[in-house]
Design a protein around this nucleic acid. Structure first.
Lengths: 211, 211
DNA sequence: AGCATAAGCGGACTTTACCCCGCTTATATT
DNA sequence: AATATAAGCGGGGTAAAGTCCGCTTATGCT
């Protein structure tokens, strides 16, 4: 009797071939995105180009959106690391308001960098992919609480700030033309500045720190 | 020579048969949404049920999402009317901050009421449907300016507040189970309260009016 | 090592959004 | 009223997402 009481004991670690195929698919997908843009990545095309069956693709990433969620997730991992255990102001230890501001800038920057993929990760039939806000919203909520803000409206406020942070990129911004010629300043630098500064204003006012 | 200098002179008012078909399609679509839910409305099904060709549907509403945008638009018209020329606090004349708050509550209520349709109106390939934020964002921007807020960040702030208002419903909220048995309190009443109050807090703090 | 079994895999199949292009019909002009 | 012409219309065609199910293969047990 091994402990089934700890439910995460061993969910079957993932077969070696499966892992190999996941890597293969993810890499292939990334290449296809780079070459033709996220919009032109099809399930059939990906399967063919990776040299596996279509069924395999669907087993790994439930839906088309799933691929992009996974792609995004991978790219996000080190950012999350810096948030959870890096140096302030992004990492733990500093003033919560500063952390909020730093988090916002980082997140918007990330989303803009991966704009096409981030949008492709949205799914008409699902509320929202697990990858993105899965960490953003609780983190904002946590920092708000740390800053002593929100009170009875903590949850709603966290939700709305999350939307204020991610919504513009996910919902309202048109996908800017593709990759800038190597070495050029990316086209979205202005947008990043605007959104990051707007976010800072928003957060400061919400938290009542220096209007 | 009639004036082509005024570009909106007469964009060809729309042929009578076309208008008839639009009404027919819109009504049919509404019925189908009510019966089977927005997710189960297909282009072929709609065309068949309305007794017109598929091509006709596509001509009227460029895409599937277009149908729902139109549906939403129609329902929104009287709300817009009240915003533009109704009595305060929603209509013109009152304190801008109060107008912002009232607008937010009204908009969230509307979006929750038409949640399924609103989500269906999103299009993977388009930044955002023209109908919704088309009025929301400029209105918020205008009221912010009226309230003397925003300054250099007016545009970004308006964008982010728009997202804070609409994002939760469009992005993060799961579609609640279908229509409540006639006469019952709709399931989303709680969510409406939470979001409306959160919005009020947000707006008040952003505008520095009674923290 | 051999076996049982559950997970992985492939590709044919279905459904659906969207395109295309020739025919029909409303409206402007004479 | 007749005609020209641009808009409306229809339905067959394409491509891509997602499902199904039988075959294959890795892994745990003895």
């Amino acid at each position: 009797m091994d402990g089934d009481l700890i439910p995460l004991e061993k969910p079957r670690p993932e077969r070696a071939d499966a892992a190999r195929n996941r890597r293969l698919l993810l890499d292939t997908a990334r290449r296809m995105v780079a070459e033709d843009g996220a919009a032109n990545v099809t399930m059939d095309g990906l399967a063919e180009r990776a040299g596996v069956g279509k069924g395999t693709v669907y087993r790994r990433f439930r839906t088309r959106a799933g691929i992009f969620v996974a792609l995004l997730d991978e790219g996000e991992r080190d950012f999350q690391q810096r948030v959870l255990s890096g140096p302030p102001p992004l990492g733990p230890g500093g003033d919560p308001v500063d952390r909020l501001i730093a988090y916002g800038r980082g997140r918007v920057c990330f989303l803009l960098e991966h704009h096409a993929v981030a949008r492709a990760a949205l799914d008409r039939n699902q509320p929202v992919p697990a990858g993105g806000p899965g960490l953003t919203r609780p983190h904002i909520r946590y920092l708000l609480a740390q800053a002593g803000q929100g009170g009875r409206h903590l949850d709603a406020l966290a939700l709305q700030l999350t939307a204020a942070l991610e919504g513009p990129v996910l919902l309202y911004l048109a996908t800017p033309a593709e990759a800038p010629e190597a070495g050029e300043e990316p086209a979205w630098t202005r947008q990043l500045q605007a959104l990051a500064e707007g976010w800072e204003v928003l957060v400061r006012r919400v938290c009542g720190s220096t209007p």
